[in-house]
């Protein structure tokens, strides 16, 4: 369960974000608004990467723990950007291994986990590939796998589908939502696209907390 308790973010006395909400495991809540409306600022507050120019009040609660002041790496909040942001100097397997917890020990065990993850997404045999040689859809899937392998307790999506073409978009969107539901991860989607919001199936809010009709 991901809860925002009166999360308010201001910059130069301008209120950008004012949210109180609770996302159940497997549920997808959407924040929708035009660009510059503070959607991504809300996500930055939840990942703990808010620039010093912003001021935050309120609390972020994940599974009962207040994570508001934890460093990013300890929050267990997964994030997907507009672009896949694969690490260009690592192979596909190297990218996935970067996400896999170090508690999975031994080269063989780790390779097996990576191969299984790739197979589950229909990406068999791509382990040693240069990420730059993948198609747009493949890159998006690898980015999703990398995020999920880290076993996040919550998932944040920063317009992750906006760069994909229409056919691919529906497909990738579906597999992201399905994966989140299956794993029982509370998910927060940020988008300016009403179709994304409809597909998410959960409540839709503005960054300042109002409920939006679709």
């Amino acid at each position: 369960m991901l809860e925002l308790e009166a999360l308010r973010i201001t910059r130069d006395d301008r209120l950008l974000v004012d949210l109180t909400l609770a996302i159940r495991p497997g549920q997808v809540v959407t924040i929708m608004g035009p660009s510059g409306s503070g959607k991504s600022t809300a996500l930055a507050a939840i990942t703990g990467t808010l620039a010093p120019a912003f001021a935050r009040t309120g609390r972020i609660i994940l599974n009962g723990n207040d994570i508001s002041s934890l460093p990013t790496r300890l929050r267990r909040v997964g994030l997907m950007f507009q672009e896949p942001v694969l690490f260009p100097h690592l192979s596909v397997a190297g990218n996935l291994a970067f996400g896999l917890p170090s508690s999975v020990r031994g080269r063989q065990a780790r390779q097996a986990r990576i191969a299984a993850a790739l197979a589950s997404a229909g990406l068999d045999g791509l382990a040693d590939r240069d990420p730059a040689t993948l198609s747009g859809g493949q890159k998006a899937r690898v980015a999703l796998l990398r995020t999920l392998l880290a076993e996040p307790a919550a998932l944040l999506l920063d317009e992750p589908f906006s760069r994909l073409d229409a056919a691919l978009r529906a497909q990738i969107r579906q597999s992201v939502f399905d994966s989140a539901r299956q794993a029982g991860i509370p998910t927060l989607l940020v988008t300016h696209d009403a179709e994304d919001a409809r597909a998410a199936g959960g409540p839709v809010l503005s960054p300042l907390g109002g409920t939006l009709p679709l």
Partner: peptide, 24 residues
């Protein structure tokens, strides 16, 4: 964004520097 992505995957500042930033 690479650092942010890595941090959300649980990587420490040190790991991000030595494994991602420096090699890149």
């Amino acid at each position: 964004r690479i650092a942010t992505t890595a941090a959300t995957l649980g990587a420490s500042e040190g790991r991000i520097f030595w494994r991602l930033r420096l090699p890149m």
